[in-house]
Structures are given as C-alpha cells and as structure tokens.
Computed example of a mutant assay.
Amino acid sequence: MRNLLISTLVLSAVASTSLAILPEQVVLAEDTKEPSLLVRAYRNLFNKKEPPIKPRNGGSRPIGSVCMISPDAPSVYRKVWSDRPLFLWQGYASTIAVRHPGSNINLWIHPAVHTQNITYTGEPLQPGQVYNWVVNGGQFVPFQVMDKEGRDRISSELQNIEKQLKSTGANTEAIAIAKANYFAENNLWSDVLQQIYSVPEPSAELTAFREDTLQKLCQPAIANNSE
C-alpha cells in the first residue's frame, strides 16, 4: 500500500508540473482529469469531514497577538516529523524561540522582525519530546516531535519519492509538492507547509497556494505593528 502511494505521488508530481491550477479556483467534475497535487493537498488540509487544521477567526484574537500558523494548536499536541520545523505566523513578532514546557530558558531564539516564517536552526529536536514555540517572549504553542520509529519510516519513504522523481528529471518544486502531498495524506500539517515553503523560487501556482492558505487560516490579517 505504501509503495502504491509513493508511485502515485511520483506520477502525479510529474503530471502536475505543467498544470496551472490554483486551489480555490478550480471546480472538478466527476469525469475530469485527476487534480494536481496542489489541489489534492489543499483538499486534504481543508475539505475533509474532520480537517486536520481549522481556520481561525482572526477577529477573536487579543489586540497585538500573533496568529501562530505552524505548528498550530489543535485539541492535542500537533505532531511534526521534522526535527528542524518551520515556524509560520501572521502579525508582528520581534523574536521567536523554542523552550521546554514550563521553562523560561530558551533552547533557541531568533529575531523575527522582517519575516513571518523561519526554519528552526538550532540543535536537532529530540524524537518524542514536547516543546513550546514561543513568540515575543510570551505567546506560545506546544508541539511534539514524532517518535524515532515513525520518523525513520517516513524518512525512508521520502527518500524513495525523491529518488523516483529525480530519475524522471522532476524539478525541486515538483519534488517538494510530492512530499507535501505525502505529508497531507498522513495529516502531518506542519510538515506540509515546511515543504511548500522550502522552494526558494516558487511558481505562480505555489505562491497562490501559500497565500490562499494564509488567508484561509488567519482572517482578518493582523496589521504589522512595526509600521
């Protein structure tokens, strides 16, 4: 079953590299062609009966707070595969940091004034451990790194996806989208976005996916307090 999923992702990634489909702008009839991986990932994130992520009402946040997008805060800890996760938010942040729960000591801290997404660059986070992602020294979201067995299994499957795609001549974006859709199929929301944001020069379609996802999750957008 796993090998079938990987093969499907590889074939779909190759096919979708030439498609100009934006997540919110496509309506697919039952007899039309297979949707692109971007559309499939979007559906996995938002259109399930019980979606892994839920849009937040931006107006309900306290004034000055930040919409912490990834990792987010469901009813239980959000699990992430990556031991160097992406932190993604909307709103003004001077710093972001990682701490152990209940501790005020930063394991890692990074200035964040001129960006709204940063990939963790500290020592690799430990499998199975819970951490707090902290914004501006106070607002935080807990998340948990997947256990070693799960991480190793997924690492092997991602290597297979990348190897097969490279053999077809697929570009960096196609590989990232295939990996993102793999994570979406497994409800690993934060890792989906990490792949989507890993492409240094995204296409118009991928840029639209990013923007649409942010708008879906954090509306109304928070004004930048630095202005």
Rank of each mutant, 00 (worst) to 15 (best):
T8R: 13
S18W: 03
L5D: 06
P51S: 05
L38R: 10
E50N: 07
L19M: 15
A15Y: 08
T8Q: 14
N47A: 10
T8A: 12
P51V: 07
V39D: 00
E50A: 04
P52I: 02
L37I: 01
R2N: 14
V27R: 12
A13R: 01
E50P: 00
N47P: 00
L19N: 10
K33M: 14
L38P: 02
L45Y: 02
E24T: 14
V27S: 14
K54W: 02
S36I: 05
T8F: 11
T32W: 09
F46L: 09
A13H: 01
E50L: 08
L9Q: 06
L38A: 08
R43M: 03
N44R: 07
L5W: 04
V14F: 08
L19D: 07
V39Y: 03
I6K: 10
Q25N: 15
V10K: 05
A20N: 14
L22C: 12
E34N: 08
A15D: 11
K54L: 12
N3A: 14
A41W: 02
T32A: 15
S12H: 09
I21M: 09
S18H: 05
L19R: 15
T17Y: 01
S36G: 11
R2Y: 06
A29F: 10
E34H: 12
I53V: 12
E34W: 08
A41R: 02
P23L: 10
F46V: 05
V14Y: 13
L19Y: 05
E30R: 13
Q25D: 15
L9G: 11
I6S: 10
T17G: 09
L45Q: 00
N44L: 09
R43S: 05
V39N: 03
A29E: 13
N3S: 13
K49I: 09
L45P: 00
Y42C: 03
S12G: 13
V26S: 15
L5R: 06
K54I: 14
A15L: 11
A20I: 09
I53Y: 01
R2K: 08
T32Q: 15
E30T: 12
A13W: 01
V14C: 11
N3K: 04
N47V: 01
K48W: 00
P23K: 12
S12K: 13
L37M: 06
V26P: 02
I6Y: 07
E30D: 14
S7V: 03
L5F: 05
A15T: 06
P51A: 02
L45E: 01
L4S: 07
F46Y: 10
N44Y: 04
P35G: 11
A13D: 03
S12R: 12
Y42V: 05
T32F: 11
P23E: 09
L5M: 12
L9P: 03
L9Y: 04
Q25P: 01
L22A: 15
P23T: 13
K54E: 11
K49H: 04
L22V: 09
L38M: 11
L5A: 13
K49V: 10
A41Y: 00
E30P: 04
A15C: 08
A29C: 11
